[in-house]
């Protein structure tokens, strides 16, 4: 995993200060998940990904974009604002940030029950996580309505 010591000292100091300023979030009620081999999985990413035709994200955006399960990565762009992280690996293989092909392979191999028809992307670098509450609950309702059992959270 990436550690603060991997980052530039100024960036690491800033992120420590941000983390210390965050308000703790109470745990949600525990739900025993289905076995993965029976679970339908959706990706929820904060990489600021969206389709070219979508309205791009702006700094601090608290809305989200849909990525369909059959999306072609050629139609996906990034409007995440951070400039401190290397994007060349994502350019090489979008699964680095959005492991849709890996989920498709796992579904084909029977390791997971299925892949959701829809996946969801938020803007990262969000200074006020409480501002995301309404959109987060909305996505939760959409996932439930789509019979998704597991959300794979991919913070970027």
């Amino acid at each position: 995993m990436v550690r603060l010591t991997d980052l530039h000292e100024a960036e690491a100091t800033h992120m420590r200060a941000r983390a210390n300023a965050m308000t703790p979030v109470d745990p949600a009620p525990w739900i025993s998940p289905k076995p993965l081999a029976e679970a339908k999985i959706a990706i929820v990413s904060t990489a600021g990904l969206h389709r070219r035709s979508d309205v791009p994200f702006t700094p601090g955006a608290v809305d989200y974009r849909l990525l369909p399960g059959d999306v072609d990565f050629a139609d996906v762009v990034v409007s995440h604002i951070s400039t401190n992280f290397d994007r060349s690996a994502f350019q090489q293989d979008p699964n680095i940030w959005f492991p849709l092909d890996r989920l498709r392979e796992m579904a084909a191999d029977g390791e997971i029950g299925g892949v959701s028809k829809w996946h969801y992307c938020f803007m990262g670098a969000q200074p006020n996580h409480q501002a995301l509450e309404a959109a987060g609950e909305e996505v939760g309702r959409l996932l439930a309505a789509d019979s998704v059992d597991v959300a794979l959270m991919v913070p970027v």
Binding site: H14, M15, R18, G60, S82, N84, G124, A125, P127
Partner: peptide
Amino acid sequence: FGENNPETGD
């Protein structure tokens, strides 16, 4: 500046 800067790189 920090209050206005969303660059947390989460």
